[in-house]
Design a protein around this nucleic acid. Structure first.
Lengths: 344, 344
DNA sequence: TTGTACGCGTTATCAA
DNA sequence: TTGATAACGCGTACAA
């Protein structure tokens, strides 16, 4: 079932069929066009994209590299990427790296061999090793991971944490603990930095005993919170570096028979779908995950288009920053130790 | 950067380079091989998969069609598909249909044009319209959606619900309500059927007032449960057709100041990651989502291989069934109305 | 307005 | 053991 079959059926040459197919204002006699159209419909013909891609060097395919689609942070990003891609006729190939260098390198090579027109890399912590040298051969855009050499779409993690901290301070909290993510992730470091800076700015010192390093999973948050809440001078608020850990913290408080928010306030980060269904509902920082993905895809296509149109040298790095929003729900309330404000 | 460049660099013909590349036992003098290998490394050459695909008719790419990756049920399936695919050198193109017919049709056509070697369709409720006729042109496998004409990987929804019902009955529950999913989904109907059959088998009649139709979302479960629990003779247990609705039910009970499981037991279906982090932790039926995806991918490749090896006529339909497991957690306990067993 | 011929990058076939 | 050539399905420059 090729263009030649259609040509035979319509009694014209393959070239004519092609011209009708891509109707690019090329002159074709209306009558002939009808015959071709009819043949196409009769045979239910659809051009082979592989052949087209080989000739035109346009696969209309991009790669999306993420740590793990099962991590609730990535589905929304992926959805943003995919929606934007399909709206423009692009397909998306998914790659889960588990933040493993070998897998990451392998995927990059595979994508490049498949001649993808670009690669979106979301999530930090992955070292691409030698494969990173090949990024120059395609168009790459990073998401949520500040990169010096490549364009990226990010959020301001430190500023976002500061927003959440201000909320807690305004509620009268003075002893605010932090359960961070893995040290090696830039986002973790930025969020921790935002926490520390915020403490200083509010004149709350910097007690190392108030920080735990988690791993961005529920159990990590559970352990960190449990440890913090078991201390003699326990904190009145816990800021978890992501929602999964915050939900773990909620569970830890419950197991220790502490009420949230009466005894301890909890703030998360990400605003995953479940944040509004756990009890109490979770105060958190809402990352525009979908927009992050959609924006990355748009940026990718835009930059690629620019490159294609000869603007090769104009590789002025672009780092788009999207705003994070504080969503106040039921897991935060006035500090039990603060005077002058009632807490139920 | 083509095979010809490598040939020039190594001072041999493209054919020789190709033979070294695909080292298929084809005789190449060791010395020549070394020269070629050296040139490949020096130029960091990797063959163009598009050209290869055009000639060999093997894209080593499959499509995965799902309703919405943001729905917590699909990431695990996707992960199973992707892991199995990448382990065998295949790439996966993702398509989110939102159960929209137009989008679904469009995606199928796009995938076919991209010459994917197969398509995995997960999740029901989508009508592919005329595009379904084209399934015969490729290899298709359905997941969690019994199909008459095509191979599938499923779970026994009705039997699974029956397992959960038996658990509740054993706990002394007699008035068990059900919040179902959308009527139009086969899985919904099967689960409702399992509920009804189970009631009959346990001699509990079939009171229509005990069934609500939800939409598989948290708010749907919330509304359904709230309605059920506001009745004068409220049920002692609620079986939700999926975890998201069960979590909504937990929220509804909480808002009505009912204790789970002391006042009402709740059972979910799916065992999403959050099921063990909501409070109380959720008793549910664990779908082997990852295995469903991985199995579908294996089946797809196996059937395709068979077809490729001439076994065209041997299209004996295969429907693989994977077991569902009851996971008992804290949201179920003895019925408050049952005598002889303590609750608390 | 339409048709012929070439080339995209690769591998398989055949000849050397 | 190696090389020249054809072919995969398509779009386009050029000729008609």
């Amino acid at each position: 079932m090729t263009i030649a079959d259609v040509a035979t059926e319509a009694g014209v040459s393959p070239a004519t069929v092609s011209r009708v197919l891509n109707d690019s204002g090329y002159p074709v006699r209306p009558e002939t066009r009808q015959r071709v159209l009819h043949a196409i419909e009769k045979l239910d013909f659809r051009p082979n994209e592989v052949a087209r891609a080989l000739l035109l060097k346009r696969t209309r395919t991009v790669g999306l590299v993420i740590p793990d689609i099962a991590n609730p942070y990535y589905p929304a990003i992926s959805r943003g990427v995919e929606d934007e891609a399909s709206a423009r006729g692009y397909a998306v190939i998914f790659c889960n790296t588990d933040r493993d260098s070998a897998k990451s390198e392998q995927y990059v090579h595979t994508l490049l061999q498949k001649q993808v027109e670009g690669i979106i890399v979301a999530g930090g912590g992955t070292d691409f090793g030698k494969a990173s040298e090949t990024f120059a051969r395609t168009q790459v855009v990073f998401v949520g991971r500040p990169e010096l050499r490549w364009p990226s779409v990010e959020i301001d993690n430190a500023a976002a944490v500061a927003t959440g901290m201000s909320h807690l301070v305004e509620l009268g909290h003075r002893r605010i603990a932090f359960v961070g993510g893995p040290e090696k992730l830039t986002s973790s470091r930025d969020r921790l930095e935002g926490y520390r800076r915020s403490l200083r700015e509010h004149g709350l010192g910097d007690e190392p005993g108030l920080v735990r390093e988690g791993d961005y999973t529920e159990s990590g948050g559970y352990e960190g919170a449990r440890s913090l809440l078991s201390e003699r001078r326990r904190p009145t608020a816990i800021f978890a570096a992501n929602d999964r850990m915050a939900i773990g913290a909620l569970a830890a408080a419950s197991d220790l028979e502490l009420e949230v928010p009466a005894d301890v306030s909890v703030v998360g980060f990400d605003d995953i779908a479940l944040a509004r269904y756990v009890r109490p509902t979770l105060t958190t920082l809402s990352i525009p995950a979908y927009d992050l993905g959609a924006t990355a895809m748009r940026l990718l296509l835009e930059l690629q288009e620019r490159k294609r149109n000869g603007g090769a040298a104009r590789s002025k790095r672009r780092a788009v920053r999207l705003p994070v929003q504080l969503v106040i729900r039921d897991s935060t309330a006035s500090s039990p130790r603060s005077e002058g404000s009632s807490s139920t």
